[in-house]
Amino acid sequence: MNPASKLMRVLVVDDDEVTAAVLEHSLIEFGYDVTVAHNGREAFQLIRSGEIRMVVSDWCMPEMSGLELCRRIRERSGGAYVYIIMLTSNSRTQDVVEGLNAGADDYITKPFQPEELQVRLRVGERVLSLESRDLTIFALAKLAESRDPDTGAHLERIREYCRIMAQELVRTGETGEDLDGDFVHMMYLTSPLHDIGKVGIPDQILLKPGALTDDETEIMRRHTVIGGETLDALVAAHPEARFLLLARDIAWTHHERYDGSGYPRGLAGRAIPLCGRIAALADVYDALTSKRVYKDAMSHEAAREVICEGRGSHFDPRVVDAFLRRDQDFHRLQRALADPPTPVAALS
């Protein structure tokens, strides 16, 4: 194990404290970071944090059985894939079939043998690593961004700003939507794709140093539609990859305005998906506080003023309130991820 690498977190779910203790001990010896829950309900709450990728669960438990836990995990919309191993003394073929049908990935009968458990956990790790989605998404976004070198660490900042606002909205619950840690994770993951449609904008417009003409502005605005339609085609081809829905909505709606005066469709209020309303504020804040060849960077305080002025017109008031409650985190990140000054040689 590379000491610098993060331990994979495994959730052990068993109402029997003896089995839970033996399991926990083995998993720690195998090099995992272990959390223990004593029933399905407690386990499901932990999984909703978005930090659990592997679960070893008993079947028969009070409050919520392992079978019900499997179903609940698989019913969630979006979220990272959770690998589930059922560990139970129910060993009949029909039990195995029922467990796998409920969404378990693997099935081990009690008492477990450490060597067997270890290799099965490794199988789980391999399956999870196949889902290299996070890296792929960011690589795609970086590829799109590479055509416009003026944007520096824009994507890194955008996803951090989106994560902060999503966290705040989940914490307060004021959007009235059923959001959890998965939504926060998905916002972080997919927000860098917001400008992916810029791959379809001609260089002479995308890289034009001066102001755009009306026609050029119209073409530039098409990046929202190009990105939205591209990701929509992916959604149609891979409906099981639900994170693509969020990515599509962000690409399509991050230039919409809360009062309906934005583009490309002039959506207003809650007709704009929440992810788009969050990305809109993050994108504007970053544009204001970043230096470009045609403008200086605005201070955090001045950008904050602009955002406040747009409350209820450009931006969703709840999203602005979330921003204001966490604006010091924005300021800190903005400084930490600020682009380095352009070298003099590059300006000549």
């Binding site: 404290e17 003896v18 001990h25």
Partner: peptide, 24 residues
């Protein structure tokens, strides 16, 4: 022997588990 293998060869831990098991 089987218990000790399940406890990854740690007999102190096995004894602690047995104590917990007995009480339960």
């Amino acid at each position: 022997e089987e218990l000790l293998a399940r406890c990854m060869g740690n007999w102190d831990f096995a004894l602690r588990v047995l104590g917990k098991f007995r009480a339960r």
